[in-house]
Write a protein that binds this DNA or RNA. Structure first.
Length: 108
DNA sequence: AAGCTGACTATGG
DNA sequence: GCCATAGCCAGCT
């Protein structure tokens, strides 16, 4: 497992319940700004990671649940978020900015 | 081994 | 404000 993937998982695991962040924010925090795709790719590969990775708390910059179809069911991502108090409408997080969790800001 | 792909984002028309 | 284009780079075929 490359360092990049491990670091992505470590950051994602530190996202508090009810909070969300974006692929770009994580990439930027890891010093690989512009490689947001790799963060998404890491999520795609998170199933092979030995620990639980709350990939549902990572969405695109618009708060859109673009990765919902990569879960067991298309509604799994939405239900997980709503279970944590995050409202979803039309596959988009309501008050996204309010729930946004910036790793660079929260983790220093 | 060489190319394609993608859970993204910024930019320009 | 929506559509097209272009960087990004690791894994998969």
């Amino acid at each position: 497992m490359s360092d990049f993937f491990s670091k992505v998982y470590e950051v994602v695991q530190q996202i508090p319940p009810g909070r969300v962040t974006s692929y770009g924010a994580i990439a930027s925090y890891l010093g690989t700004a512009g490689s947001a795709r790799m963060v998404g790719w890491a999520m795609n590969a998170s199933h092979s990671y030995p620990e639980f990775v709350p990939a549902h708390r990572v969405v695109n910059r618009n708060g859109l649940l673009t990765g919902k179809y990569h879960f067991d069911t298309p509604d799994a991502m939405k239900e997980l978020l709503e279970n944590e108090g995050v409202k979803i409408k039309e596959d988009q997080i309501i008050h996204f900015k309010k729930h946004f969790w910036d790793p660079a800001k929260e983790l220093g």
